[in-house]
Amino acid sequence: MAFVNLQNVTYKYPLTKAPVLQNVNLQVDEGEFVSIVGPNGAGKSTLCYALAGFVPHFFKGEISGSIEVDGKESSKSTLDEWVLNVGLAFQNPFNQISGAKYTVFEEIAFGLENIGVPREEMKSRVEDAMALTGIRDLADRSPYSLSGGQQQRVALTSILVMRPKLLVLDEPTSQMDPIGTREVFGTIRKMAEEGMTVVLVEHKMEWIAKFADRVIALKDGSVLLEGKPNEVLTSDLLVENGFGISRYTSTAREAKKQGIWKKESLPVTLDEAAEGFTK
């Protein structure tokens, strides 16, 4: 039995005409790192909300099918119970700052206060989480004084500190520079290796190819493709459906037509491209 199990999930927001998710089937194993790609409007964020319990508990609307995480069924649970198992961080870091706290340290502790973690344990968990994401030096700063990239790290840390079994991340590195992105992907990979299940929406293909176990391509609310990162991210179907792809892939595809790229498979990362063009 998969750790995350979505069966025929169809969902419509109260104010939209058409369903945003249509017959989504999705299984993720415990400790697996799955990445979701897709053009704007494909339903990526809605899928994240569904995994994290906000669809339908927060947004209401019409839902059918079943959402199970760790053997529990979302429709039979309440949101405040659900979030203990499933953590969510999303794109806009500014709106994720609670506003209730004056320092980054307090901000990260906010969730632990809410769920009643004793003070000493709280402090050590906050310390550990900050060390993990490399923001120890921000501990005493006001969350509002940080750059977008730093705020995104704080948002991620604020969720990691809750130690969810399933971590759902919706473009958590959109405002980070290349170095920051690399570090954060490394952290997420490490969490997955320690047994946390990760579902990550991202459009930085190179990083997905390097770090994710599996990729799911979403289009118009349905799963278009799924499989190993390299298979999915180099598929012709992605280009035809308006997905963003790595420049290495598109260039190698063109080179293949011209007979310059000799390998059968196409590259996603710099290393793969360099290797293929060297031969």
């Binding site: 909300y49 994290a52 906000f54 927060f58 949101l79 405040d80 979030v83 203990l84 953590g87 969510l88 961080a89 999303f90 709106n95 994720q96 700052i97 609670s98 209730a100 906010f110 969730g111 632990l112 206060e113 809410n114 769920i115 009643g116 973690v117 004793p118 003070r119 709280m122 948002a155 604020s158 969720i159 809750m162």
Partner: peptide, 15 residues
């Protein structure tokens, strides 16, 4: 959503 995701409405006694 962000504060809810961090257990804001949890029925636990806050610390």
């Amino acid at each position: 959503i962000a504060i809810e995701a961090r257990g804001f409405t949890s029925k636990q006694t806050k610390t």
